[in-house]
Amino acid sequence: MSGAVRTVLGDVPGAELGVCDAHDHLFFASPRLPGEELNDVAAARAELTAFREQGGGAVVQWTPYGLGRRAADLPVLSRATGVHVVAATGLHQDVHYDDSTLTALRGRAADVFVAELTRGIGTSGVRAGLIKVAGGFHALDAHARWTMSAAAEAHHATGAPIAVHLELGTGALDVLDLLCGESGVPPHRVILGHLNRSPDPVTHRQSAGSGCWLAFDGPSRANHGTDWRMPDAVRDLAEAGFGDRMLLGGDTTTASARSVSGGPGMPYLLRRVAPRLALAAGDDLVRRMLTENPARAFAADWR
């Protein structure tokens, strides 16, 4: 299917996503967050249901290889709740893995990404719909350069979009230099995450000017002092003509942050963040950020 979003239930036209949380997690487990693993299927279903009740139609899970994706559970949850789910392949920062996991992937990371995009994750048969990688704080270390080069190779083989965790929102231009400059990935296939955590209007405009996607994702994490500046950053980009390049996400990464555990969770994106942004930048822009833009950002001409 040309120009399709690869969900855990198969390829669908982007317009079928509806209101999309462009970056979140149903399952996620990292040694960096002991005791806060997202590994409860019932809680994931309740969270998806709560998101659906707020008008949500799709969730893009950025959990990559080796961090507890529970791929086999995703189709069941999608069918049960009526919410489209997109799964990821790729690799996070090296601090999230033990040495043996990374050593086993040396020289074959791109092949693993391609296999998970085209044949399925493990024995689940669930195909990933994007590649997630990560940069460092204001820099790209050797691990980031290796994983991004592998992601670029997998993109060229499959057409898959590449989503990038920017550490505290930094390093956007270095990422674009590597992926789009050195590795030849078309900018419109790159999604930069966490730009709300570094509200630098110059970098935001330069990044948007490349043609990439800018994700403002993480409002469910109340400990970021830059969250209150996100409406101004979004409005600035819209006024500069980049309203068609922005996405919104929740990025719920801990069990205690879920709405079913008393936190803001996925529903907060539609219950509080979207209305707040609409006051600053208008209903039409927020609608595009939640529907039209993700429909294009996550669609690919799959090979």
Results as ranks from 00 to 15, higher is better:
Arg145Phe: 05
Ala151His: 04
Gly218Cys: 07
Thr170Asn: 00
Asn196His: 12
Cys212Asn: 01
Ala222Arg: 11
Gly181Lys: 03
Asp141Tyr: 07
Ala172Thr: 05
Pro186Gln: 06
His224Tyr: 15
Gly181Pro: 10
Pro231Glu: 05
Asp227Glu: 15
Arg205Leu: 15
Arg229Phe: 07
Asp200Thr: 10
Asp174Gln: 15
Arg145His: 03
Ala163Ser: 12
Gly181Glu: 08
Gly225Pro: 10
Pro201Asn: 02
Ala215Trp: 00
Phe137Leu: 14
Asp177Gln: 06
Leu195Pro: 09
Ser198Met: 11
Thr158Cys: 06
Cys212Met: 08
Arg229Trp: 02
Leu178Ile: 03
Met230Asp: 05
Phe216Leu: 12
Gly211Pro: 10
Ala142Gln: 06
Arg189Lys: 13
Gly218Thr: 11
Ser149Glu: 08
Asp232Val: 14
Pro199Asn: 04
Asp217Ser: 00
Pro231Ile: 04
Pro201Thr: 08
Gln206Lys: 02
Pro187Phe: 05
Arg221Trp: 14
Ser210Leu: 13
Gly211Val: 05
His155Gly: 03
Glu153Leu: 03
Val234Asn: 08
Thr226Ser: 13
Ala151Glu: 06
Asp174Val: 11
Gly181Asp: 11
Ala208His: 06
Pro219Cys: 01
Pro187Asn: 03
Asp174Ile: 09
Arg205Gly: 11
Ala154Arg: 06
Cys180Arg: 07
Cys212Thr: 11
Ala215Cys: 12
Leu178Asp: 01
Leu140Lys: 03
Thr226Asn: 04
Ala142Lys: 01
Ala160Gln: 09
His143Ala: 02
Ser183Trp: 09
His194Pro: 10
